[in-house]
Design a binder for these strands. Sequence first.
DNA 1: GTGAAAGCGCTAACAG
DNA 2: CTGTTAGCGCTTTCAC
Lengths: 368, 368
Amino acid sequence: MAEQRTAPPTVYDVASAAGVSIATVSRVLRTPDAVREGTRDRVQAAIRTLGYVPSGNARALAGKRTGVVGLLLPGFDVVPDERPDLVTDGGVRVVDDRRHVTQPFSSNLYFDEVLRGAETEAWQRGLALMVAAGRGSSRDVIVNDVAGRVDGLAVLAQTVPDDLLEHVARRIPVVVLADDRRSHGFDSVSVDNAAGMRTLGSHVIGRLGIRSSLVYLAGPIDSPDDIERSAGFRQALDDHGVPASAVRVVHGDFGRVRARELAAQLLDGDAAPRAIICSNDQSALGVLDAAVARGVRVPEDLVVTGFDGIDAGRFSVPRLTTVHQPMGELGRAAVRAIVDRLERREGPPRAMRLPVEVLLRESCPPAL
Amino acid sequence: MAEQRTAPPTVYDVASAAGVSIATVSRVLRTPDAVREGTRDRVQAAIRTLGYVPSGNARALAGKRTGVVGLLLPGFDVVPDERPDLVTDGGVRVVDDRRHVTQPFSSNLYFDEVLRGAETEAWQRGLALMVAAGRGSSRDVIVNDVAGRVDGLAVLAQTVPDDLLEHVARRIPVVVLADDRRSHGFDSVSVDNAAGMRTLGSHVIGRLGIRSSLVYLAGPIDSPDDIERSAGFRQALDDHGVPASAVRVVHGDFGRVRARELAAQLLDGDAAPRAIICSNDQSALGVLDAAVARGVRVPEDLVVTGFDGIDAGRFSVPRLTTVHQPMGELGRAAVRAIVDRLERREGPPRAMRLPVEVLLRESCPPAL
DNA sequence: GTGAAAGCGCTAACAG
DNA sequence: CTGTTAGCGCTTTCAC
């Protein structure tokens, strides 16, 4: 690396090197046209030879805004992979990965997409993005830390307790993602869970004509997502005049393993279901696992649907019909919402709903 | 959201509210033990009721360091998805996704993993992470912007031109990822491309005994990764006394489509290859495509290998043997390298090499 | 223990 | 066009 100097050069260094005042240096940086060409060139030359990089902190302090938005994620899992059999070792590990059962994707990918969306939008608006994962005990510190350096903050649902969020919101605009927080007074961006499930339900009930032997595999009772999705499905039943009693509701935990167990029970029971509507993709994959293990044909004997649109559903056998959530858009919308709020501090909280898309694949095709 | 006050409270506000000086407020925040308990409580109460969040910028300016590290990525692709057939529209789009060919994963996922690794490591060290994608004309601006706000910067190879990097490196430590830059004077973290390919090559040549009809499907001629990998393969040939002339080298572009075309030509030619060693996974997937299309059996008739360890290779049919790069580790190591350099400004540039792992899957199994 | 005061590096009026 | 001069909000000696 280039030799690290004692102290980085400042405007003063540049100014004296170029024989001008610090104000002129600042102008060359911010409003180049307001400086005579000759002067400008001299200053730029000085900047170059000194290796001057303006301090963003000083700039933010002096100006009003920082040009940075923050994104708080719930924290990445730091679960070390379990490794498959080691075959040989010759400096480089060689692993027999043939039996390495394809793991369900971690939910991290979900955040990754949000993050990328936010980054993209921030970039397009000339903003920088500061990311932090709010985990463990140091979370409060981190939240404050980030909040103190950005113009606005996007927070994924369940990441930060409400009181902390309210505290921070007194300083900068806060947008909550994936959870409609209007009631709490925050701006929010979320996805249209209810409409998505309603549409999917209508497909199963209306188009495919499955009006009985229906199972709804729900998530944890306190999940906001699940509540909305369940409601959407109930609407679909209503739309087609199917009584709620025609549907058996089973509660899982959004996990693949638990779903597999539950599905096994259902499939082995006397009243075999004709369709299992799952509140998320992981559950649906678990159901597929159970079906495959029993030789139950999907979709001929059993129709299965999920919700989320995770990649694993594109690779399952059969491929999984699902409701796709626009994760990237969620991130982008978050940044947009922050910028909006920055320009218009007043006004009631806004809740933005992003549309979802039903993707019909083999596990529940367009027609049987 | 909570009502947005005119101006966020500052230390002064807290100080007067608590009846102390700003120095005491600062102490309560930085060195709580240096303040009498009663005073401390009063200050904390004031902080709470005022909704005070310290300005990270002012803090960074006054103190020496910012507690933030920067990560510069080459930029995410902003290619809008092409959408499959629209079936119906009832508020929610319903799409027949059955024929939607599973797309090659975008290389974005690669960056996502690096990003997550960096985030994880930064978090564990109590640092925040500032991400930016260096694209387009505004790149220089962004780079300077980020560099001006962080203690150190990690940059993915090919993201920033050398001169800019050198300029920035005069202010803060810079670590280059995925490219050995020692020669350029930068610290670097990269992956052991050569050893990985050498080991994989040895498996194919030595263990499987394929000593002729070998094809090496390389990447673009100017790719540093490809250069190292090719060298590794040549070493493997050497190790087993196979003359370089026994191998046909074909240059692709690291893309799936091009690889498919090239593989088609090879497979349709008179001298059908027994093994195609590819310089990356995307190419290998293209080769698999071509093989499948022709009824060429893998691995019975043709052995195929990749390099990278992208997820798509875990789902292909047959599953792809590859050399897995520890992307997450790359990000973590980058942050570590920055912290190291921060603590030890002096000293020659360091190049860290991360180990790779050969994953044997069905496309080139442990034994035939 | 606590307060007073001097900057950190930059921007933004305000004069000239 | 360019220079002077206040701060921005906080940390940090140095006194008390």
